[in-house]
Amino acid sequence: MRPDVVTFWHGPLDALRLTCLRSQVAAGHKVTVYSFDPLAGLPDGVGNAEAEAILPHSFSERLRPPQPDGSWRDWTILQFSDFFRMRLMAEKAGLWLDADVLLLRPVELDPAKPYFAWERPRQLGNSVLYLPPNDPIVTAFENLMKQDELTPDWLALRHRLTFMLRQLSGKSKRLSDIRVAIFGPAALTALARRGGELQHALPKQSFYAVHAEPKLFFEQTDFSALLADPQIIGLHISPKGRGGQRPIPGSLYAWATERFGLADLPSPGGGG
């Protein structure tokens, strides 16, 4: 099955993300970006849906208080999107792709089975994610969201100790403050291990071939082997603030913008 693609974004989209969304449409997927405010300049074939219907904006305040002007603080966007993708799984919305996943070929999956890949040794990535709505990972997140404290029962011992020390010292009473990815890849990995689902994980090369080495995407290099590798379905890119910069000639980014259409360079935002 070729699934619909869904993601979440908060703020304006930069050129890199627009290029990646175009690549997802070019691969033959229906693509929908959820947001709280309308997104201007979305590529043809990309829809925009109301995020409030999936996970209320007010949920963000359970992660951390907003700024005085109401805007979200530091890690809020990333952690909110960790919960948002699980809510989309519960709603049978489709395959989650981060907005900075460049698809090189269509994604085909079995809707009865999980779909994810190793990001690095012993840790799954959650930038590419599909789970059946009755999957135990989805259920675990749904149960977690019913708690006021948002303290997972799958939390690693080192994180429990860190959280306890922060509580005792008065530094924080929120688990969300101890680590930006506390509800992200590590949580997915722990739950997949607990549910015996690691067997479904695709190899790292399928989506994370350049994730840890963004220079392979942004700098001039010979990327022919990446494009020719049949194992690579897409590339999750870690832009490190470079999503709004113009591509360097001879880079994989320059190839992607030419292949999928060079976008204008709006200001960066945040999200999935």
Rank of each mutant, 00 (worst) to 15 (best):
L129I: 00
V180F: 13
E197V: 12
W118I: 01
W96Y: 15
F83D: 00
Q199Y: 00
T139D: 13
R120M: 11
D148A: 06
R105P: 06
Q199T: 09
P68A: 10
M86D: 04
D153V: 07
P185I: 05
A99G: 14
T162I: 08
T162H: 10
L104N: 10
R120Q: 12
A181L: 13
L95G: 01
L78Y: 15
A181T: 15
Q123M: 14
E119L: 01
M89H: 14
A190Y: 10
V101D: 01
W96Q: 06
Q79H: 07
R158G: 10
R194N: 10
E119F: 01
E108C: 03
M145C: 10
Y115I: 04
L191K: 07
L150V: 06
L131F: 04
F183A: 06
P152C: 13
P106I: 00
D135P: 00
E197W: 03
L109K: 05
A186P: 03
V180Q: 11
T76F: 02
F163I: 05
Y130K: 00
R122Y: 07
L88V: 02
A117C: 07
T189Q: 11
A156C: 07
W75E: 08
S176H: 05
P185V: 12
R160V: 11
F141D: 01
K171P: 02
L150E: 08
A90N: 08
M89P: 00
L150F: 05
A201D: 10
W154P: 00
L150S: 06
T139M: 01
L157P: 05
W154I: 05
L155E: 12
T189R: 08
H159T: 04
L124H: 00
R194C: 07
L150Y: 05
A156D: 14
L155A: 07
G170V: 01
K173E: 11
Q167S: 14
R120W: 15
M86R: 05
F163S: 13
N126W: 05
Y130D: 02
L88P: 02
S81E: 07
L103V: 12
S172F: 09
L198M: 11
Q199I: 14
A186S: 09
P106M: 00
G70F: 14
I77A: 08
P111M: 03
R160S: 14
W96H: 10
L150P: 06
L144P: 12
W118K: 03
K113R: 15
L188N: 13
A190R: 15
K92F: 11
D69H: 07
D98R: 02
Q199C: 11
D82A: 12
G195E: 09
H159I: 05
T162Q: 11
S127L: 07
L198C: 12
F183L: 03
T162P: 00
S127T: 04
V138E: 09
M86T: 01
E108Y: 15
L157T: 11
Q199N: 05
V101G: 04
Y115R: 04
D82K: 10
A201M: 08
F183S: 07
K92C: 15
A117M: 02
L198A: 13
L198H: 01
T151W: 09
I137N: 03
R160H: 04
E119T: 02
V128L: 00
S127A: 12
